[in-house]
Computed example of a mutant assay.
Amino acid sequence: MGAASEGYGVVWWEGRRRGAHVIAFELTHGDLARGTVPDHRCRNRLCVNPDHLRPATAKQNAENRGPQSNNSSGYRGVRKDRRGKRWVASARHFGVEHRVPGSFASPEEANLAAIALRSRLFTHAEEASHV
């Protein structure tokens, strides 16, 4: 039996509370290398499917996030400009926001620009294509 804490599944394992996804990964693939965590490719924090997990550094794990809950466009790194008429694209990398020059008529166009920017910046380029 398990529970959820901060959006992740947790279980008691060998006398201590552990992430359910960590246990699932280690039972299937062996111990995680030092400095890595299981990254949910599916972006579902409650998922414990070992096929959806892969080892990643904390930086790589952060690169594989989806749009924030307050995002109105539905696309990661896409928002309305200051006047609220056009769409702009950006990506945050090492705490610095990188913006795509110009603006776009639709959120879909801005999303393509944000994907291209993340592909250049992120080490997990596979995730850059996710919205």
Rank of each mutant, 00 (worst) to 15 (best):
A24P: 02
A110C: 09
D39I: 07
D39Y: 02
D81I: 07
R118D: 04
F94A: 14
P67G: 02
R79L: 00
A105H: 10
R18M: 15
V88W: 01
G35R: 10
E108K: 14
P38V: 05
V48K: 01
E26V: 07
W12S: 14
R83T: 12
H29I: 00
Y75P: 00
A33I: 07
P101L: 08
Q68T: 15
R41T: 06
V22N: 00
N70L: 06
A105K: 11
S106A: 11
A33Q: 11
L27E: 15
P101Y: 08
G15E: 10
I23D: 03
T28N: 14
C42H: 09
R118H: 11
G74K: 12
T57F: 02
D81A: 01
R18Y: 02
T57Q: 04
L46T: 11
S90N: 13
L32A: 10
Y75E: 02
L27S: 12
S73M: 06
Q68P: 01
N71F: 09
L27W: 10
G35I: 06
A56H: 03
G66R: 05
L27V: 02
R17N: 13
S72L: 14
F94Q: 14
N61G: 03
R41Y: 08
G30W: 06
F104V: 01
S119C: 03
R45G: 09
H93C: 11
R92P: 00
E63P: 07
P50V: 08
A58W: 12
E14W: 03
A33E: 15
A116M: 05
N49I: 03
R65S: 13
N70R: 15
R118V: 06
R17H: 02
